[in-house]
Amino acid sequence: MGNSLQDQLLKAGLVDQHKLKQSRSTQHKQGKQAGKRGPQVDAEARQAAERARVEKAERDRELNRQRQEEAALHAAENEIRQLIHANRVVRDGGELVYNFTDGATLKRIYVNKEQHAKLVAGRLAVVRQDTFYEVIPAEIVERVRARDASLVLVFNQPTAQPDADDPYADFQVPDDLMW
């Protein structure tokens, strides 16, 4: 059972020793040549490896660019958050309600009388920070707007000239009107 076909043919006398050696050497040479690659196949493999390396380098550059953009975005968000937190006006003990809109929803914060007057006059502004609202001075509003204008919810600026065609120009809305 352990005998190969060549050994069995040799024992049966169908093949002589010389033919057996010749057959083995031919098989050995074919096996070696199959292991060797020709110059054409070698060049193609190098080109494929070079293409793969270039594509990987491009993907890596793109990933690095995206990571840098994300890091810059997070840094800007943190900068805004620190700017608002450092310059917010303390609203403890506010007895007046100041109503404003955040998108389509009506929101309210409690401020004192002086802060309410400043909000109406445009010397204070309401900004959104994460999930809550802060009151900050007008000087800081411009810096916040430069970084992200969507955070500024209320910043009253007086109009220079009323419209000439406005039929209600003679009727001014009082500043202390509560709604």
Rank of each mutant, 00 (worst) to 15 (best):
A49F: 13
L10N: 06
S25Y: 04
R108E: 13
V15L: 15
Q8Y: 04
R108P: 03
Q6P: 03
I84H: 08
V135K: 07
D165N: 11
G38A: 08
G13R: 09
A71H: 06
A34Y: 07
E139G: 12
I80N: 01
A164T: 10
M178E: 06
T131I: 10
H85Y: 11
V126L: 01
G35H: 11
E69S: 11
T159R: 09
S25D: 14
A149G: 00
K32N: 11
R53L: 14
T159P: 03
Q40K: 14
A34F: 06
P39S: 09
E58N: 15
R145G: 03
L83H: 03
N112Y: 04
L106R: 14
W179I: 05
S23N: 08
A57R: 15
R67A: 15
K107Q: 09
V54C: 05
D102C: 08
D148G: 03
G31L: 14
Q22P: 00
A86R: 12
Q172I: 08
Q30F: 07
A48Y: 09
R46S: 12
D176E: 13
N64T: 14
Q22L: 10
A12E: 15
R61I: 05
Q40F: 10
K56A: 15
S23I: 12
E50N: 04
P174H: 07
A104K: 15
Q129F: 00
Y168S: 00
R46Q: 14
P137S: 00
P167T: 00
N87R: 05
G38E: 05
E55F: 04
R91N: 00
V144A: 04
G2R: 05
L9M: 06
D130G: 01
H74V: 10
N87C: 00
Y98W: 13
D165R: 08
N156Q: 01
Q66W: 04
A12I: 05
L5K: 14
P158F: 05
L63V: 11
N87V: 06
F100R: 05
Q40E: 15
D102L: 03
K107N: 01
N156F: 04
S4Y: 02
K56D: 15
E50M: 09
L83R: 06
K11F: 02
E44T: 04
P39C: 02
E58G: 04
K56Q: 15
E50Q: 10
D130Y: 11
L63H: 09
R61G: 03
Q33G: 04
V127M: 04
D16W: 02
A75W: 03
Q17K: 13
F155L: 04
F132T: 12
L14P: 02
R37F: 11
L73G: 00
A121N: 10
N112A: 12
R65V: 05
Q161K: 13
R46C: 10
V152F: 00
K118E: 10
D130Q: 09
E114K: 13
